[in-house]
Structures are given as C-alpha cells and as structure tokens.
Simulated assay, not measured.
Amino acid sequence: MSSIHFFEKGSGQPVVLIHGFCEIGAMWEDFAQELSKDFRVLCPDLPGFGKTPLQKDHITLEEVAVLLEEWLEENSVENPILIGHSLGGYVSLAMLELMGSRLKGIGLFHSTAFADDEEKKAMRNRTIQFLKKFGAEKFVNSFVPPLFSEKHRIEFASEIEKATEQAGQSSLEGLIAFSEAMRDRKDRFEVLKNFHGPKLMIAGTEDGAVKIEASRQQKEAFTDYVELVGTGHMGMIEDKEKTFEIVRDFCTRI
C-alpha cells in the first residue's frame, strides 16, 4: 500500500497537481476546489513533505516517479494530466519519461526541463549546508518570501505567512534529500520535446528561481506557453485568477 498522503475532489478526467519544494499538497486547495467542478483532482504530498513520510535519507526523482506511478495505479487513476509547480514539474517530467503516452498531458508551472547548471548546483550545495547547520525552520523562514515578486510581498503578506506555515511541514530530511535530487537530476528537454500530447508552460517574468530566459529557450517544446508579466515564482497565488483560467482551459481542451 502506498504511503503517499493526498486529498482529492471531484470526478471525471483525472488532474494531478504536484507541489514544489518546501510546499505541500494543500497549497492547491483553491485550485482543486475550482477544477473539481469539471475534473477529478488529486493533490499528493511528496515524500518528506506534509504527511507523506520519507522512507530513506536519499531519493532520486526517478524513485519518486515510480512511487507516484504505483500510487496512481492503487487509486485507479488512468491517463492523468499532470501539473507540477517547480520541483513538482521536475517530478512530472520524470513521470513523463516513465509513463510516456499513459499521460494525457503535462504542465510545468514555474519549472524547467533543463538540468541545473553549475551556478544552480552550487546554490543547492549551499542550501544543504545551511539546512545541516541551522535546521529546517530557519531555512523555511528565509526561503519562502523571496519566491514572491518583490513588488507583491506587501500585498500578499498573509499568503506568504500561510505558505511559510505550510513549508514548516517539510521535514529536514526531506529538504536535504530533495535538494540533492534536484541538484543531480538529468536534463529532460528531449523527453519533453518527444512527447506528442498537450504541454503547458506557465512562466513568471520576475521569477527568481526559474529565470524567464531559460523558460523562453524551451518555448518551442510546448503547445501552450504563457508568460505572467511582473509575477515571481508563485503565480498560482500572485496571479490566481489568470493562472486558474489558463490551467482550466488547458485541461478542458484536452
């Protein structure tokens, strides 16, 4: 039996919303509520986040993909549409490589098919060192606010507080394990290009975690590509109504 904790709403075509690093499935509550009017929406906690335990100290994205594939089978989820935020996008791409045409479509929400470059790998290593030295709570409090565009941080102060509270449900072991997994992940741009189903990318022009230049380099691989002007890494909060309509339209057309 899978140890993946999740919640689901609605019925019909399955849509799986996969959260990012320092997040939990509950981040999608508003999206799930709206999408559930037309779809069966499932929102898992990745291992080491929320209520899903991390079974070992190290994990690869390929192993996460296998765990989620088993979880989908256990819950009779066939031909799902995957929408992944940041780390959730990396997981979705690993699942795409594993499941191929058994996926109905895929969406990257502030994410990338490229591997980390050397600068990003060095940043991951610094994150790991910080976590080992200072622990999860201090890291979470410093990590979450910069995910939002600087101009939005006062406007979305309560949302930032809620995101920080949810991030506090990340285990130290999970944060370290996924920092390593993200650092070491492979480039899956060709996997993405070779998938002939519908593909969505939502990018933020002020995203500090996934630079807009990198998103634009991948534009050709997607059937649907949208830029959110002035938005940081948290478009589902910073531009909730627009991003919801984008995702709903994408899923409806599939």
Rank of each mutant, 00 (worst) to 15 (best):
E69C: 07
E23K: 04
K219G: 06
F244E: 09
V210C: 08
E206N: 10
F156R: 01
L42K: 03
V226N: 09
L172M: 08
I4W: 01
V191R: 02
A203V: 15
L103P: 15
L96T: 03
P53S: 03
T127D: 14
D249M: 13
D45Q: 02
E173P: 01
T60D: 05
R153D: 14
W71E: 04
E8C: 11
V66H: 04
T60F: 03
T223M: 07
R126E: 15
V41K: 01
C22W: 07
A65N: 01
K56V: 09
F7Y: 15
I202M: 09
K120E: 15
K240V: 08
E119Q: 15
E62H: 01
H5I: 09
G88R: 03
G25C: 11
E73A: 10
K37T: 14
S11Q: 14
T60A: 08
A203W: 01
R126D: 13
L93H: 01
K104N: 14
S170D: 07
L67F: 04
E190M: 05
F178Y: 10
L147R: 11
A177V: 09
E34S: 12
E70I: 13
P47I: 02
I160F: 05
G105I: 09
E155A: 13
S171L: 06
V41C: 05
V77S: 04
T231W: 08
Q129V: 09
P47R: 02
R185H: 08
K193W: 02
I18A: 00
V16T: 07
G107T: 08
F6T: 09
V66K: 07
V140G: 09
L200Q: 00
R102I: 11
P145M: 09
T127P: 02
T112V: 10
K162N: 12
G105M: 07
G20K: 03
D116T: 02
H196C: 09
S2C: 13
M27D: 13
F250Q: 00
V226E: 14
E173I: 07
I128E: 03
E29Q: 12
V64E: 01
V210Y: 05
K133G: 08
E63M: 04
S158H: 12
F134P: 14
T60V: 08
E241V: 11
F195H: 00
F178L: 14
N79D: 14
A122Y: 07
G174H: 03
G50I: 05
L96R: 01
Q55T: 15
I212F: 07
F31R: 05
T112F: 00
S86T: 09
E63D: 09
Q169F: 14
W71P: 01
I160H: 00
E63Y: 02
V66E: 12
E78S: 11
